[in-house]
Computed example of a mutant assay.
Amino acid sequence: MYSVTSKDGTKIAYDKVGQGPALILVGGAFSYRKFPQQVELAYLLSEYFTVYNYDRRGRGDSGDTQPY
């Protein structure tokens, strides 16, 4: 797991797999980066892309700084 800090100080967690052009996976409203189908998709795409699979604000390992 990697993390980056947004401008307002919120930690955003992500995983990175593969090599090639960057591709960012955006999970659905109730999803998070470790959802099994999301992980499977990331690995399938990683043959062709560098896949960034992240937890949206307030989900999984990402923080939720108020207000936003």
Rank of each mutant, 00 (worst) to 15 (best):
residue 2 Y to R: 14
residue 2 Y to N: 12
residue 5 T to V: 07
residue 5 T to M: 08
residue 5 T to F: 06
residue 6 S to D: 04
residue 6 S to P: 01
residue 7 K to L: 11
residue 7 K to G: 08
residue 7 K to S: 07
residue 7 K to H: 12
residue 8 D to T: 03
residue 9 G to S: 03
residue 10 T to P: 01
residue 10 T to A: 05
residue 11 K to H: 03
residue 11 K to A: 02
residue 12 I to W: 01
residue 13 A to N: 06
residue 13 A to W: 05
residue 14 Y to K: 04
residue 14 Y to R: 04
residue 15 D to W: 00
residue 16 K to G: 04
residue 16 K to L: 03
residue 18 G to K: 00
residue 19 Q to R: 06
residue 19 Q to T: 04
residue 19 Q to N: 07
residue 21 P to L: 11
residue 21 P to Q: 10
residue 21 P to R: 10
residue 22 A to S: 10
residue 22 A to M: 10
residue 22 A to H: 06
residue 22 A to Q: 08
residue 23 L to M: 11
residue 23 L to Q: 11
residue 24 I to T: 12
residue 24 I to M: 07
residue 25 L to D: 09
residue 25 L to N: 09
residue 25 L to Y: 03
residue 25 L to M: 09
residue 27 G to M: 14
residue 27 G to W: 09
residue 27 G to S: 14
residue 29 A to C: 10
residue 29 A to N: 12
residue 30 F to T: 13
residue 30 F to G: 14
residue 31 S to E: 14
residue 31 S to R: 13
residue 31 S to W: 14
residue 31 S to V: 06
residue 32 Y to M: 12
residue 33 R to M: 14
residue 35 F to Y: 15
residue 35 F to P: 08
residue 36 P to E: 14
residue 36 P to D: 14
residue 37 Q to H: 15
residue 37 Q to G: 14
residue 38 Q to C: 13
residue 40 E to W: 11
residue 41 L to H: 01
residue 41 L to S: 03
residue 41 L to N: 01
residue 42 A to N: 02
residue 43 Y to D: 00
residue 44 L to N: 11
residue 44 L to A: 10
residue 44 L to D: 08
residue 45 L to W: 06
residue 45 L to G: 07
residue 45 L to M: 10
residue 45 L to P: 01
residue 46 S to L: 05
residue 47 E to M: 08
residue 47 E to F: 09
residue 47 E to T: 11
residue 48 Y to I: 10
residue 48 Y to G: 09
residue 49 F to E: 03
residue 50 T to C: 02
residue 51 V to F: 02
residue 51 V to H: 03
